[in-house]
Design a protein around this nucleic acid. Structure first.
Length: 285
DNA sequence: CGTCATGTTAAGGA
DNA sequence: TTCCTTAACATGAC
């Protein structure tokens, strides 16, 4: 589910309902999620703490705590399939399929469901420390920064933009959208893009992410992935909700459909084992 | 049976 | 050392 817009939408939602939530009891059904910490060590760090507020960095949620021994925030990454939502404590939350972690409070339970188990709950900040700038922060993310990270690099521009140490928060869906708006071929070596192209790229990144956050925060969302909401958090392959979501994308998931700009059929190729969608007329090498 | 899926990262080569 | 590429992780849908 999660690229920067989805995580930011979830953050805004959770921040409004999670403040003051005190962790009374912790259930860890999938120990892999709290790696490399042991389950007992993880519980010792989190037990009894109260959620103060929730921040975001790239695709990571940072759950700031107080009242406990470590003042380090709990860092949550949703991986490919993580979902986070509250349930009433009287509900049978323990029967939820693929429930990986549950934090029981006084009357609510914060449930973390993760089918594939790529997500992570940790107090280790090492992956945050190397993270690139926030693309929506104009002070640190601007055409000159893009110029700096692209210079002398032969890596494909798509791979560079998805690398979290270069830009925080872009993933495989929005990077396709960004490159389409920028008229850049996904395989274009980063170092061959002239300055005007990087100015356009910077604008495209800001526009794509800002638009997606605005859509997310103004919609009735399905945080649990039950299909009852408008499906913004539920990118499956079929179903009404998924089609509604995919209609918002200009090229992602649109192989064979006409380019919104020139009607040429959208192509799909694999780059670094990820599906890549582009218009061969608008995005040339 | 095979392919694909919103992500990260360890390992290896140049 | 830096840069770049690839495979692996785990589960479900089609």
């Amino acid at each position: 589910m999660p690229e920067l817009p989805e995580v930011e939408t979830l953050r805004q939602h959770l921040d409004g309902v999670a403040r003051g939530f005190r962790v009374q009891k912790i259930l860890v059904n999938k120990p892999r999620i709290v790696r490399p910490e042991s389950v007992t060590a993880f519980k010792r760090l989190l037990g009894g703490q109260t959620i103060h507020h929730i921040d975001r960095r790239g695709k990571f949620l940072m759950v700031h705590l107080n009242g406990g021994s470590p003042f380090k925030p709990l860092i949550i990454h949703l991986g490919m399939s993580g979902r986070l939502f509250f349930r009433d404590r009287s509900d049978a939350f323990q029967d939820i399929p693929h429930l990986a972690v549950a934090l029981e409070g006084d009357d609510r339970v914060l449930c973390y469901v993760d089918v594939r188990g790529f997500g992570r709950w940790t107090f280790d900040v090492s992956s945050l420390e190397r993270m690139g700038p926030e693309p929506l922060d104009p002070d640190t993310f601007h055409p000159e920064y893009l110029q700096q990270i692209c210079r002398d690099r032969s890596v494909k521009i798509k791979d560079l933009l998805m690398h979290q140490e270069r830009v925080a928060g872009l993933g495989n869906i929005y990077v396709n959208e960004v490159l389409f708006l920028s008229r850049l071929h996904p395989m274009r070596p980063a170092g061959t893009i002239p300055k005007p192209g990087l100015v356009v790229l910077c604008q495209a990144i800001r526009k794509t992410l800002t638009e997606a956050v605005r859509l997310g925060t103004s919609s009735d969302l399905d945080f649990e992935g039950t299909g009852r909401g408008d499906g913004f958090f539920y990118f499956g392959r079929s179903g009404q909700a998924d089609r509604e979501v995919k209609e918002r994308f200009r090229v992602y998931g649109r192989e064979g459909q006409p380019c919104p700009a020139c009607d040429t059929p959208i192509l799909r190729m694999m780059i670094s084992q990820r599906g890549t969608y582009y218009c061969p007329t608008c995005q040339t090498l």
